[in-house]
Amino acid sequence: MNNVVRNQKIAFACLSGLGLLTVLVLIFIIGYILSQGVSMINYEFLTSNPRKMGSEGGIFPAIVGTLYLVGTTMIIATPIGVGAAIYLNEYTARGKLTSMIRFATEALAGIPSIVFGLFGFAFFVILLEPITGGWSILSASLTGVTMVLPTIVRTSEEALKAVPDTLREGSLALGTTKWQTIKSLILPTAMPGIITGLILSIGRVVGETAAFLLTLGGTLLIPNSLLDGSRTLSLHLYMVAMETGAMDMAFGTAAVLIVLILIINLTATWLFRRLIKRFS
């Protein structure tokens, strides 16, 4: 019997150690990046143009590029993703068509980002060049849309499922059409959950590099339109680290990215808590 107790004690100690290790790894990564990079962050770093291939100066064009790319991607992906979730959850019963759509969504979620990059390169950058301007914010955004679609569809569907059917019945019984019910009752009720998914998608776009490496062009100039090439913070970090070899700039950019991701995650968590409260 003593052996059993001892084994359990050892096992539980090991498992607790793993739990602790996970948190420590996170703290170490974030702490390391911030300690190396946070001293770089100041007003000038954030608002001035890079000089000498990014080895000096600031990261302003990368900030602008990130905003452009996130904005364009989300403006296109949101209606498509939320629309698909509404269609799947409100308009069709489970059948062949829906299982095909669900399968495709799952498949999209599993495709590596570099493959999205290859596709975006062949389709948007080369084939559709007259429309997209080749390597451009538009090409990269359209590629980004296919990447974030699964996240948006899945989270929106969860949010719609959480709306009780009694509300749908109550509204339809008042003589409203299905779309009126969805538009003025179901969507507003599910909104916090949907927005959580959108924020997670923004995080994905901010953190993505491989796909944009092949579609965004990577110029350091500030873009004038969606048809111009650009570079995001992640792409900038990669390029200054691997090509320019300016490690202080790389750590500075990484620190900015970490702060951004922290903000995005905290917002998503906060919204998710609010969602749970609403239905309890």
Partner: peptide
């Protein structure tokens, strides 16, 4: 349904 209204078992305020 506009002409024939309905009240449900459990109150379902929006």
């Amino acid at each position: 349904r506009k002409k024939v209204g309905m009240v449900f078992q459990k109150p379902n305020p929006f």
